[in-house]
Simulated scan of single mutants.
Amino acid sequence: MRLRFASYNIHKAVGRDRKCDPERIMAVLREIDADVIVLQEADRRFGDRASVLPRALLDDYPWKAVDVARRPRSIGWHGNAILVRRECEVQDSEALHLPTLEPRGAANAVIAIEGRNIRIIGTHLDLSGLRRRDQVRALLEFVARTTEDCPTIIGGDFNQWGRFTGAMREFGDDWHAISPGPSYPSRGPIARLDRIVTSPSWLCHDAHVHHSPLASVASDHLPVYAELDLPEL
């Protein structure tokens, strides 16, 4: 099975031109055409935490939002949302709490693709760096506690500049950390903040930063994606 997995910090749909344009974000996602997408900053931070991508807008695209929201107008948890193709069957989903000095969390889902269950976790780690390692540990402990042993992908904005330093060390040798390339800031990317980390089951066929003319203005981050292979049992 080959899966295209993408991660995108959409900056509440506000682009470099300071315009809030959800349809532009969706157009970028159409360009990538991933099977599974984890989003960061998909909900507004204050008030009722409404999604910046209206559900009615999502109805016009080939993805559905996994139900991890705690508020009626949200599609995510602390801005973390998961989109999957409509034919994917969602077996389980939940919002995860992370140790934090600021509002942070993660979205977790188990989905069935081609008859196989896989776990997807989307997250946005601490900006200050004080709790990033604790947050990665919490995610790994959650995976270790789950009763279902299934191939896992963790994606998101790790806010970690070093490819193999800091919080990334917590993954050890068993997990495969994929840094497709510089993705921030979108105008002239220099930092590899957006990462994809996989359990040993996965093989990375290819990975890219999506740097199209539209993506360069739609958000302050560029999306990243990877083509992942899951060998037959």
Rank of each mutant, 00 (worst) to 15 (best):
H211R: 13
E170R: 07
F171G: 01
D174H: 12
F171P: 03
V197N: 05
P185F: 05
A207H: 14
P180K: 03
H176F: 12
P189V: 07
H208T: 08
A167Y: 00
R187P: 07
S199V: 09
H210D: 00
M168A: 06
D206L: 12
P200M: 07
I196D: 07
A191E: 13
Y184M: 06
S183Q: 01
P185K: 04
G172H: 01
L193E: 04
P189L: 07
M168Q: 05
L203N: 13
A207F: 11
M168V: 08
C204L: 11
T165V: 11
R187V: 12
S212H: 00
S179I: 07
F171K: 02
R195N: 13
A207M: 11
G188W: 15
R169L: 10
G181N: 02
F171L: 05
D194S: 09
D194W: 09
S186T: 04
S183T: 02
D173A: 09
T165F: 12
H208P: 01
L203I: 15
S201Y: 12
G172Y: 03
G172M: 01
D194L: 08
P200H: 08
D206C: 11
A207R: 11
Y184N: 02
D174A: 13
I178D: 04
W202D: 07
I178P: 04
S186D: 04
G188E: 15
R169A: 08
R187E: 15
H205Y: 12
V197A: 05
V197P: 05
D194A: 09
P185Y: 05
S199A: 08
I178W: 03
A191Y: 13
H210K: 00
H205D: 15
M168S: 03
S201V: 10
A177I: 14
W202P: 07
R192W: 14
H176Y: 12
H205S: 14
R195P: 10
A167L: 00
D173Q: 10
E170H: 03
T165C: 09
P182I: 02
L193Q: 05
S186A: 13
E170A: 11
H176I: 10
P182V: 03
D206V: 10
V197F: 05
W202S: 07
C204T: 14
G166S: 01
D174S: 14
M168N: 04
D206E: 15
R192A: 14
Y184V: 06
H176L: 10
P180A: 04
D206A: 15
L193W: 06
